[in-house]
């Protein structure tokens, strides 16, 4: 266990450094984009006087490095700053959206992960059967069609035609938990469709890969049933690659859902990030990107811990 604690500490320190580098890269990237916040927000109505007044109001007339270090200093003091655009404190601006994004991601994951693993195991169990082929074709079709198409088809059938679910995911802070589950069902299913294939096929491949190993052959010679061989003997050894794929897909559910947010008009982080980039709302872009970076770092860390725990050889290195 000390081993793991040490690794977690190391990875956390590295993670902090990564975050610093990322914040620098994002800052520079936004700096390099043509136009700044004042111009972007005023759009067609930008006149030189308006732009100058606006820049001065926001401190955009200062050199880039000063703005960056001022921002970094504030962050280290726990002050996330204010949005250029709405002048609201960023923590209140994004708290609701972070919650919405995590809620939808968790909802989709709760549907997608068990379904993907079950179908993957069953597909491995009945390899090359009609069932295996059908599951594969369905999953590959779902993952190959763009998200908005899957979403539109679901909306057409379940919202417009049958009227079971609302076509848009409008929620407020007063929406109850049960209502959320109903309103978000279609977005969650859309996300399930686009993430499931990857996890399912990895499960299937990892298990099939192991089925050729001598110890599985031994188990079979002992006369064990196929189901028991797969669940008790193959699956634990196949967990490491599966956990990694699941982690990547969970990260995707948090950072990559902007299309689904737009199609369902769902107020999540993705839309906020897109709007903020197009308006060059620097402080919001920074925080949103850092949240995404933290997501990746944490999920990767969890995946590594999971792989280590699932593999006794890694737990007791010589």
């Amino acid at each position: 266990m000390a081993q793991i604690a040490k690794m977690v500490a190391q990875r956390m320190a590295l993670g902090l450094f990564t975050l610093f580098v990322i914040s620098l890269i994002i800052f520079l990237a936004v700096e390099f984009l043509p136009g700044d916040f004042a111009q972007a927000v005023l759009g067609q109505s930008a006149t030189p006087q308006n732009v100058a007044a606006f820049r001065h109001e926001l401190g955009l007339d200062q050199p880039a490095y000063i703005r960056y270090f001022t921002w970094l200093g504030d962050i280290l003091h726990g002050d996330l700053g204010r949005s250029f655009a709405s002048q609201r404190p960023i923590d209140t601006l994004i708290a609701g959206r972070v919650y919405n994004t995590l809620f939808l991601a968790a909802y989709a994951a709760i549907i997608a992960v068990p379904t993907a693993l079950t179908f993957g195991i069953l597909a491995a169990l009945y390899r090359n059967s009609v069932f295996d082929r059908l599951v594969n074709i369905a999953a590959l079709t779902a993952v190959s069609s763009p998200e908005f198409l899957a979403a539109y088809i679901l909306i057409f059938i379940f919202a417009v035609h049958l009227g079971w679910f609302p076509p848009i995911a409008r929620i407020t802070e007063h929406t109850s938990f049960m209502d959320r589950l109903e309103i978000l069902f279609l977005p969650a299913v859309t996300l399930t469709l686009v993430t499931m294939a990857h996890m399912m096929r990895m499960t299937r491949a990892a298990i099939i890969n192991l089925m050729a190993s001598p110890y599985i052959e031994m188990a079979r010679l002992k006369g064990l049933r196929r189901g028991r061989i797969i669940l008790r003997h193959a699956l634990p050894n196949a967990l490491a690659p599966i956990i990694n794929v699941v982690a990547i897909n969970l990260a995707y559910l948090i950072v990559g859902v902007v299309v689904v947010e737009v199609v369902f008009a769902y107020p999540g982080l993705g839309q906020l990030l897109v709007d903020s980039v197009s308006k060059r709302d620097m402080p919001v872009v920074q925080i949103a990107c850092l949240i995404f970076a933290v997501t990746y770092i944490l999920l990767n860390l969890l995946a590594d811990i999971g792989s280590i725990l699932s593999n006794p050889r890694l737990r007791h290195p010589k």
């Binding site: 539109y152 909306i155 919202a159 417009v160 009227g163 609302p166 076509p167 848009i168 409008r170 737009v262 199609v263 369902f264 008009a265």
Partner: peptide, 18 residues
């Protein structure tokens, strides 16, 4: 007054009387 940028989402919302 809702902001629904996506034209299909707006149209679906009207059709389903959302």
């Amino acid at each position: 007054i809702l902001s629904i940028i996506d034209t299909s989402a707006r149209t679906n919302s009207l059709m389903t009387q959302e």
